[in-house]
Amino acid sequence: MTQTTASPQNQQQSQAWLRGLLAIAWADGDFDKRERQAIAEITHNNPELAQQDSCENGISPGELAAALGDDANVAENFLRTAVMVAIADGIYTVGEDKLLQAFCEALGNCPDALSNLRHTLEDLEEGQDRVTLPSPEMGKSRSEKGKPKGDVLAPVRQWLDHVEVQDPKVARFLCRMIPANCPFERDIKLFGRKIVRIPAMCEINPLYEQLVGLRFRALSYLADKCGEDVSPYF
């Protein structure tokens, strides 16, 4: 199988990629059941990860850069998957942002889209460390000069749409981290008739389509390129 230049080329890169994603998953300090299961599975199926002395911290920016090498496409595709893991819950945190920026600096690759993502943290009040990602409508709030900000996440969507999946270990991790469906969707009924639908939280996520697209790419890669049974991911 021929891989593109945006994919991990060897075992060292593959392990570094996974450790980087684990670091991002841990960065917000908040682990739901799905995240715990994904992390447990990936470390169980990759014992070499558990043997790393720095496993609890994922990987240092310098280690990541050394393992991924000098290919700008590889670096940028890693950053895309890292952002996807960070915003899978629709929330962006200061801890995730700091780690992503450290990765960017070490890799020598700082996409403009990440600056837009960082803008979502600008209005945090003292003591706050996370923000719910704004919908396109919320992004049209007025700037300090009274001009509309526009959809601040539009460049992020365009950038994430180019993500590639070409590594089975990374694909499996993404399929576990990104839910197949959201358990919070429900209908409110009165006298047996639905009167209102409360949408799934993942549908409120303004980057929901990009997450769904990434999960689909990962599933397709495992099924079509690797010949794996993907039914366990549903």
Score class of each variant (00 low, 15 high):
R193D: 04
Q37C: 11
D53Q: 11
K169C: 11
D161Q: 10
Q9D: 13
L79M: 04
E164M: 12
G150W: 03
L121S: 15
R197E: 03
A67F: 01
I188S: 02
V170K: 02
M177A: 03
I42C: 03
T5I: 15
Q210V: 00
Q9M: 13
A180S: 04
S143H: 10
M201N: 08
L99T: 02
C110Q: 15
I59R: 01
L64P: 02
E35V: 06
P168Y: 06
D71T: 10
G146L: 03
N116F: 04
F78T: 08
A50H: 15
E76H: 04
F103T: 11
P199G: 02
K147M: 07
D161F: 05
Q51M: 12
A106G: 12
R142I: 10
A113M: 06
R176L: 03
L174V: 04
F103P: 05
F191K: 11
A23L: 11
D151N: 12
T132P: 14
L22P: 00
H119M: 12
Q128V: 10
N73G: 15
A67Y: 09
A223P: 00
K169Q: 11
L153D: 11
A75R: 02
R130C: 11
Q12H: 09
F234W: 06
T81C: 09
H119S: 14
Q52E: 06
D32N: 04
A6E: 15
A72W: 15
C55P: 08
G192D: 03
A200H: 08
W159N: 00
A40V: 08
D97A: 14
D167P: 05
E41V: 05
G20Q: 01
Q210T: 00
I87E: 05
E164G: 10
R197I: 05
G213C: 03
A50I: 12
E203S: 09
I87S: 03
A86F: 06
P61I: 11
Y208P: 03
D32I: 11
G127S: 13
G69H: 06
E41P: 07
L219T: 01
F103C: 13
R118F: 08
Y208M: 06
V165T: 02
N45S: 13
A86L: 07
S54E: 14
I178Y: 03
N109Q: 15
R217T: 09
L153E: 07
K194P: 01
I42P: 00
Q51W: 07
R118M: 12
E56P: 07
G192R: 05
L99F: 04
Q101P: 14
D32S: 05
L124M: 15
A223V: 05
V85W: 02
T132S: 15
K33D: 14
G62A: 10
A65I: 13
G213P: 02
K194W: 01
I87K: 00
G127R: 09
E76V: 10
A65K: 09
A223L: 00
T120C: 04
A27H: 01
A180L: 03
A38Y: 01
F31P: 13
I59D: 02
C55S: 14
G213W: 07
G95F: 02
R142K: 14
D129A: 15
S135N: 10
A40W: 15
S7A: 10
V94C: 10
V85A: 08
E105R: 11
L107T: 11
T2C: 14
D129I: 15
P61T: 11
L153A: 06
